[in-house]
Design a protein around this nucleic acid. Structure first.
Lengths: 213, 213
DNA sequence: GTCTATAGGCTGATAGAC
DNA sequence: GTCTATCAGCCTATAGAC
């Protein structure tokens, strides 16, 4: 059945093309401007054709979210290799804020838009339908990214820099919310904050580490 | 000119009615669902009539934002009276997060939606047109709220709990971003965070204060 | 598989009657 | 000042021709 395999490849290929066009529209005009017609125009197909590859607009948005989490994870991974936990936390925080600033549309989509998309993509999920996204490492990428942060606090414990009975998950959540606050407020209230993102994340991380002592 | 004054009063009255209807729609269905037609239905007027009281939809959104900042300010004001700066910071942080959780639609609108509305309402502005909103204390309410937070750090300095050369504005920005992170992430990623808002804000504030030492 | 065409809905905003 | 009617546009999704 080599012919059916070819068809499968072609299907995945056009799905990727659709997602790629969708991503560009979101980056350029924002998520609200993502319409089936615009995608169709971009890939030079008729609007109806897209429905052969995705059930509806929401399904495209969810896939876009999953991809966004994957990108975030890839962005944080290099910092996870840093041995010194304090240096690692600083690097990871910097990478996170950098990611949010450089990929603002993606960041908005995965963390500031609709819980419907955020939650669906954040949690680990099986294949939605059609089985088209089988060998997809994106499942749970958001959770994996969060685990990288949790691991920093485990490392701090191993280091005796943190009480052994401290709750790593909880500390990771507190730290994450503060990073998210910096990125998201900068995206919406850019003109009000006098401090740059870089200064904010540096100071916030230093204060946080100082508070842990 | 008693008759023209009556007309002015009636105009303001209907403007208030429009804003009030708009607020309810946003609270119930979200900002994207705010349409002129729905407002018109709610106040039992024809859609076109609204344009006699507001230039367009954006103008309504901006007024809604200004009102939101005013509400936030009112919510924080009582805590500003607390003398001990540490207790004041804790109370203010709690009130802020409480406000965001209880008024999620308003919070989304003023801090998570469109910079166009956020910035316009956050900064102090003169009367937009028509002079209808003259005796309006909402101008700069967002800034006033932020100043309440800055004052806490000034108080900590006066208290010798903080170095005299510390930058109060900067510390306020860092602290504010962390509060905003808690509220906004809870609004979008509610199911992912294991910790409650109340626990997050308590721990974050304690860590922050500890870091300041 | 892809097209055209369209159903059936929504939107902001305006013109002109009363 | 308020109405009705409507313009001009957008949207998702589907049906049926090829």
């Amino acid at each position: 059945m080599g012919s059916s395999e070819r068809k499968e490849r072609q299907k995945v290929e056009l799905q990727q093309q659709i997602l790629s066009a969708a991503k560009e529209i979101v980056s350029r005009d924002g998520f609200a401007a993502l319409t089936m017609r615009k995608i169709a125009d971009a890939i030079e197909y008729a609007p109806g054709t897209i429905y052969l590859y995705f059930e509806n607009r929401d399904e495209i948005a969810k896939q876009l979210c999953r991809q966004g989490y994957r990108e975030l994870l890839e962005c944080l991974k290099p910092t996870a290799a840093i041995l010194d936990p304090r240096a690692r936390l600083r690097a990871m925080a910097g990478a996170y804020v950098q990611f949010g600033s450089s990929n603002s549309a993606t960041y908005r989509l995965i963390f500031m838009e609709d819980p419907k998309f955020t939650d669906a993509a954040l949690s680990a999920v099986p294949i939605p339908q059609g089985g088209g996204y089988a060998n997809d490492s994106s499942n749970g990428a958001g959770i994996q990214a969060f685990q990288l942060l949790v691991a920093v606090f485990d490392a701090l414990k191993a280091n005796r820099s943190l009480r052994a009975d401290a709750d790593s998950t909880r500390l990771a959540e507190i730290f994450w919310t503060s990073l998210h606050g910096i990125v998201s407020l900068k995206l919406t209230c850019s003109s009000f904050l006098a401090t740059t993102s870089e200064e904010l994340v540096t100071s916030a991380t230093d204060l946080f580490l100082a508070g842990l002592e």
